[in-house]
Amino acid sequence: MQYRNLGRSGLKVSQLSYGAWVSFGNQLDVKEAKALLQTCRDHGVNFFDNAEVYANGRAEEIMGQAIRELGWKRSDVVVSTKIFWGGQGPNDKGLSRKHIVEGTKASLKRLDMDYVDVLYCHRPDISTPIEETVRAMNHVIDNGWAFYWGTSEWSAQQITEAWAVAQRLDLVGPIVEQPEYNLLARHKVESEYLPLYTNYGIGLTTWSPLASGVLTGKYKKGVIPPDSRFSLENYKNLASRSLVDDVLKKVDGLQPIADELGVPLAQLAIAWCAANPNVSSVICGATKESQIHENMKAIDVIPLLTPVVMEKIEAVVQSKPKRPDSYR
């Protein structure tokens, strides 16, 4: 496993990491979670991602209990969580100072930890001034409840505004953004965020490298495996949006490239994400130990992604965003 600095910070995270979205609390409990987390550690993974909204807080409880029962040294791992959707009340969601402070304390209680390494603002909150959010995230850091803060699915403009506030007030700005990034979703990472990498040293912990499993090749037109994410009731809508003819055609076109390299399509897709130098860590999900073993082999695929191979991939997906001239 390789370790990369999280953006311009001194924090080192494994090139591949594990996220609890969907699996913990919805499909897995503590016993299974322990086996998965230990398998990740055995492969050198040190970064584990969560959120207050995952399984309505149950995912944090499961991860915290699993880590405690495994007896891991807290300083050996990097744990992150995200604040935005904390409940049904008018002050239980968003990025007000009230919810950021109360939500963070509640997350730490569920995780049974004194701190998280990284705390994300899970979405932008247009109803709260960015200055209030920046001050609140610095309050969290000053109290030692988190070491760093970041954003998830914010626009480049919103991140720039947060940094402008932080610099004006001599506060800490967000060091990391967590966007979706895969062969089918590239605009933010490869175009919109370009100025952020040099201007602010923003790192990326990207999610959904397999486009919710679409890029594994396991989904065919009209066929949804019974143990897959898209078979879950909550994800039926996502399935109908994702499994369209154009997408499935691209997936079919990628298979011969993976075959030529002698690797599964899933490993090719994960390696492609990790090969981007602006990506600090690729967050992978898994419900089985075998999936983790397979996903982690993507590290060995990265060196195989020569310019020629990357051009072949591009010719199939044709998803490269046009770069604004001013950012070249």
Rank of each mutant, 00 (worst) to 15 (best):
A286P: 09
V263K: 10
A271T: 05
T160S: 14
E180G: 10
K221N: 10
I270A: 00
K250F: 10
R41G: 00
H139S: 01
V223F: 13
G86D: 04
R229M: 05
G10D: 15
K105W: 02
K250T: 09
N26D: 13
R68E: 14
V45E: 12
V308A: 15
L37C: 08
G150K: 03
E233T: 11
D112I: 00
G150Q: 03
V176D: 03
Q88M: 14
S14D: 11
A275I: 01
G94R: 13
I159V: 15
Q318E: 13
P225S: 09
D112Y: 00
V214A: 09
V176N: 09
A275W: 03
V13F: 07
A211F: 11
S152W: 13
I299S: 07
E311K: 15
A274V: 08
P174Q: 00
V134I: 13
K109P: 02
K288S: 01
G71T: 08
P264W: 03
P225R: 10
S231H: 09
Q158E: 15
M113I: 09
P321E: 04
W149E: 01
F84I: 04
V116Q: 12
K12T: 06
D170Y: 06
M63C: 00
N5R: 12
G150S: 04
K82I: 06
W149N: 02
G213R: 01
S127G: 06
S127H: 15
S228P: 06
L6M: 09
S290Y: 02
P209F: 12
L210H: 02
R4S: 09
I302T: 06
I313P: 07
L169I: 01
I299N: 08
K31N: 12
A266E: 11
N234M: 12
N138W: 02
Q167T: 03
Q65F: 04
P307C: 00
Q27N: 11
V309F: 12
N278I: 01
H139C: 01
V308T: 15
Y219A: 07
L169R: 08
T198Q: 02
V282T: 13
D92H: 13
H187V: 14
C273N: 02
V79Y: 11
L28T: 12
N182E: 07
F48S: 09
A211K: 08
W207P: 04
V79I: 15
P209D: 11
E132M: 04
K188V: 11
N50Y: 08
G64S: 11
P264R: 03
N46K: 06
Q65R: 15
V309D: 10
I257S: 09
Q178M: 06
K297F: 01
D114S: 14
N276S: 07
V176S: 05
S152T: 12
V214Y: 06
F47C: 10
V279Y: 05
G44I: 12
Y120I: 07
G25R: 10
N26H: 11
E314D: 15
G25Y: 10
D325V: 13
V279H: 05
S107N: 07
N182S: 14
V244C: 07
S75E: 15
A33S: 14
G64H: 12
I302V: 15
T128P: 04
L304V: 01
I126A: 14
L248N: 03
S96V: 11
H293T: 05
A20Q: 11
P307W: 03
